[in-house]
Nucleic acid binder design. Structure first.
Lengths: 144, 144
DNA sequence: GTATCTGCAAACCATTTGCATAGAT
DNA sequence: ATCTATGCAAATGGTTTGCAGATAC
């Protein structure tokens, strides 16, 4: 079930770009690629990394995430005071106020959501829709 | 331009419900009703309140906001580690990643947003759509 | 060998809480 | 007079930074 080829490709790509591929970075890259659909938080990734490399510091996780973001391999957003990692590609997330669970709803278009708001389909009460993106006047800094 | 009547009605309503209407609460209620469309943060409201009542503590602002939320007069959400106040009514917000500006887009339906994502109209780059609401299994605690 | 990376620890930043005092009723 | 509300100050909970030592190259 693991996308080993993809992982190896990314790691090789990073090495070529001059990044030192430490055990921590290799591990985290794997973890990120395997779990990104579940919207892991910084601490989720830290916990997961420590299962394999117990001494891993959270600042290493943090730095690596930021590195991967600057390379356009993931996107970071902050919600409820926590840092979450997400796919870079625009898509639709449904966040539950009560449980803080973030569901990824691939294949669900905004039209579908509208239908939900109109009272049919997926149950989301009192929805607040946030379209997080970049203003027209903010320069997009795509993948380096 | 001020909705004095509305303000007075809310304040009277709060008094009737048994809340002690201190100068701070009266002031904050006014400020909230006047600025809520601009999505003020906790600190925005604090700063604004201090212009009139300099000694006002941020915990008073915090407590009052929470009181108003529990009464269904506003809604609170957390983004980027900060607390924002918003109207209770479901609607559409557009948040700019770069500037952190939250724009309220009344009259813009989700259908319109979809059109945007399809490449027309309002310019939002790399949008990430968050539908923040309540899961089916989380009990809604509407206005008391 | 050396420049970068790690991980500890501390700084930071905004919210949230505790509590003695002030104040609305 | 009473009991709630205020505001200071400290606790909290997360991210972010600094830096001495470890390590990938």
């Amino acid at each position: 079930m693991t996308n080993r080829i993809e992982v190896d490709k990314v790691i090789e790509e990073l090495r070529v770009r001059g990044y030192r591929m430490t055990p921590q970075r290799i591990l985290l890259t794997k973890i990120v690629l395997e779990t990104i659909e579940k919207h892991p938080s910084l601490r989720d990734l830290h916990r997961e990394a420590q299962r394999v490399l117990p001494g891993t510091g959270i600042s290493t996780i943090y730095n690596t995430i930021m590195m991967l973001e600057s390379l356009g391999l993931l996107r970071v957003f902050y919600l409820d005071g926590k840092l979450y990692v997400d796919r870079y590609k625009p898509h639709v997330n449904i966040v539950c106020r009560g449980s803080n669970i973030i569901r990824d709803v691939d294949g669900l278009t905004l039209e579908d959501i509208m239908r939900v708001l109109d009272g049919k389909g997926v149950k989301v009460k009192n929805p607040l829709v946030l379209v997080i993106g970049e203003c027209d006047d903010i320069k997009t800094q795509g993948p380096a």
